[in-house]
């Protein structure tokens, strides 16, 4: 019995060792990111005092919040539209494609597009770029939720005297709510740690956190980076757990 579980445990270790090392080393008191010098919160303190990182974090939060808001609205409308106005499987698949498309493809495409319309790059260009795959992500999640809702709910609402708007606001949206929230959380987490697209579309004065980290690492890894990675990990983890919990609640209905 025990022997059979070995591959399972090994895979788990393989998955988590790098992450555990980063978390462990973030509490390192020494200057080297590789040699243990005793336990300390020192690097978390330095992290909090780092102006560049704080600016990057603020930028990232602006981008993530803005793009999540935009993609939640657009993605929900897209999902409802797909369910109502088309039977095409192709259109359905293409709508959610930007989530699984290689980032670099989307990045190059967006950069070319911005150049074409002569948009100067700034924080908003990243926000719009993130809203592209965010919308697709929200649409994908809401679409799944829609597939499990009874289509006669909307008809029942109309039958009981509600017009189209009231039906959407009071019946369609609330019955999709778990999917919408889960989609929004997904869009948020995707945006927070997104690097490639942000790197291509951010203006030089407004780097997001992943870009800041990248430029720091180029001059050598400090334990400060480990502390930052641990914080990011905690944030992402919370969001993903919340999203999973909500989708599961949605599924059990």
């Amino acid at each position: 019995m025990a022997m059979r579980r070995v591959p399972f445990f090994l895979t788990y270790v393989f998955l988590w060792i790098p992450i555990l090392v980063v978390v462990g080393m973030s509490f390192n008191a020494g200057d080297s990111p590789f040699n243990w010098g005793g336990f300390s919160f020192r690097w978390y303190g330095e992290l909090a005092a780092d102006e560049e990182i704080r600016q990057g974090l603020v930028n990232t939060l602006i981008v993530a919040t803005g793009s999540t808001a935009l993609s939640t609205v657009l993605g929900t409308l897209l999902a409802v539209g797909l369910a109502r106005h088309t039977r095409s499987k192709l259109l359905d698949a293409v709508a959610t494609l930007p989530v699984i498309l290689p980032d670099i493809v989307l990045a190059i495409g967006l950069l070319a597009f911005y150049a074409l319309v002569q948009l100067t790059l700034g924080l908003y260009s990243v926000l719009l770029a993130h809203a592209v795959f965010g919308t697709a992500a929200v649409a994908a999640v809401v679409r799944t939720r829609l597939a499990t809702t009874d289509p006669s709910l909307e008809e029942a609402s109309r039958d009981l005297g509600a017009n189209g708007f009231t039906t959407f606001w009071r019946i369609t949206l609330p019955s999709l709510a778990p999917g919408v929230v889960a989609g929004a959380l997904l869009a948020f987490t995707l945006s927070v740690d997104e690097f490639v697209i942000a790197f291509f579309t951010a203006g030089p004065q407004s780097p997001t956190l992943p870009i800041v980290i990248y430029s720091m690492v180029r001059f050598g890894v400090t334990p400060e980076i480990n502390a930052l990675a641990t914080v990011l990990l905690a944030v992402t983890f919370t969001a993903i757990l919340a999203a999973q919990r909500l989708t599961r609640l949605a599924g059990s209905r």
Binding site: D150, S152, L153, E155, A156, P174, S175, A177, R253
Partner: peptide, 9 residues
């Protein structure tokens, strides 16, 4: 409705 279509929320 055949499915009753009760609003779950």
């Amino acid at each position: 409705f055949q499915s009753y279509a009760l609003f779950p929320h």
